[in-house]
Amino acid sequence: MDINWQFIISTLPLYQKAAWITIKLGFWGTLLSLIIGLVCSIILYFRIKILKELVGIYVELSRNTPLLIQLFFLYFGLTKIGITMSETTCAIIGLAFLGGSYMSEAFRSGIEAVSKTQIESGLSIGLSQMQLIRYVILPQAFAVTMPSLAANCIFLFKETSIVGAIAIAELMHVTQDVIGMYYQTFESLFMLVVAYLIIILPLSFLLTWLERKVRYAEFGN
């Protein structure tokens, strides 16, 4: 098979630019998801009235609807009631909306894995509720839930491939454009795959390293 290297080199800057956009979306989407997830799981832990119900509704809504529909709703739906946001803002909010529920569930399972007696042990040395969360519950929950969190991070970076649907020039969107213009389907898709691997493989290694680090104390190597 002949590969058109000339074409690949000439479109490289396009892909580079798109890759940065993908990284940016993935980074902010994941970071916000982690924050939303953490806040939601703490609300669930303390069983805060009303907020607890809201988190429940949010998680079900977010996990059981496709990201594409969420993005359309944010981008096209909200303009109807006068809320207009840039494509990038919509995309990041969409990713965070989806990812937040996944992260919340991951954190929740980690928190629930902390035994009641560990909590009593913390209380017995006089820790306050907030100190208990910070020094006892979250570190242990984190160690337990790290594999799910890592999987969610990678999942969210891959989900960025959908946001091209609201006209953001990320990798997937650019690839479709390039194919449409030059009909070099194989080369374009090949570059797309390589670009995702360049972004996600280091992320995956980083997360594996982090996982080992946070789990060492409790589980050894």
Partner: peptide, 28 residues
């Protein structure tokens, strides 16, 4: 009121000394 439990209940994610220092430093 110091309490010691049947199953030790040391904090598994902390070293021995971190376990001991947590209360005196953060609480007291």
């Amino acid at each position: 009121i110091g309490m010691v439990f049947q199953n030790y209940e040391l904090f598994p994610h902390m070293t021995v000394i971190e376990n001991i220092l947590l209360g005196p430093i953060k609480v007291q």
